[in-house]
Amino acid sequence: MPAPKPGGATQPRKKRARSKQEALEATVVVGTYDGGLLGFGLEDGGQTFGYAPHVGCIKAVHCNQEGKLASGATDNAVRLFDLAKRVELGELQEHQDSVSALQFWKGTLITASSDGQVCIWRGGDFELLLKFQGHKAAVTSLAVHPSGRMIASAGRDQRIQLWDLTRGTSAAHLTMKEIVETLEWSPCGDRLGVLSARELLAVQVRTTATASFKDQSSEGFVRINLTAMTWLSSTMLALGDAKGEVQILHNSDDALTQACKLPREAGAASARVKALAICAAHLLVGLSSGEVEVWLMPDKIGAKSPPAWSLDSFKKLRVVETKSRLTCLAVWAPEEASSSKGKKPKKS
Rank of each mutant, 00 (worst) to 15 (best):
A333W: 01
K85Y: 08
L83R: 01
L239S: 08
V30E: 09
I58Q: 06
T108S: 05
Q161R: 13
I58N: 02
Q158Y: 02
A138M: 08
L317I: 09
A73N: 08
Q103P: 04
K261P: 00
W121D: 07
L165I: 13
F213S: 08
T208M: 13
A112H: 01
L80M: 05
L109Y: 00
E265L: 03
H135A: 01
F314C: 11
T32L: 02
F221P: 03
I179V: 11
A73R: 06
L256M: 00
G39L: 01
C188E: 15
K243H: 04
E321C: 09
G41I: 09
R18W: 07
V180F: 08
S339C: 06
D44A: 10
K274W: 02
T169V: 10
G193V: 04
N225K: 10
D190S: 15
D34L: 11
V30T: 09
V331Y: 04
S19R: 13
V285F: 04
A154H: 07
G302C: 09
T166N: 12
L256P: 00
G267K: 12
K106S: 14
A280P: 00
D253S: 02
W332C: 02
L165F: 09
D241Q: 06
M229Y: 12
T10Q: 11
T166M: 11
G107C: 08
T182L: 10
G50S: 06
T166Q: 15
E88C: 10
A152C: 09
L130G: 14
D115Q: 05
A202F: 04
L102N: 03
M236W: 04
Q158G: 01
S289C: 13
K15I: 12
Q21T: 11
A112E: 01
G90R: 05
C328M: 09
T327G: 06
L296H: 11
S98H: 14
W121C: 01
K341F: 15
E127P: 00
K304E: 14
L296T: 04
Q47N: 03
L38H: 00
V222D: 15
A271V: 12
S170T: 13
C119P: 03
A266F: 11
E43W: 04
M236Q: 09
G155Q: 06
A171L: 14
Q103S: 07
L249I: 02
R198W: 03
Q204S: 15
W121Y: 04
K5Y: 15
G290F: 09
T208F: 03
G41Y: 13
E219D: 15
S233L: 09
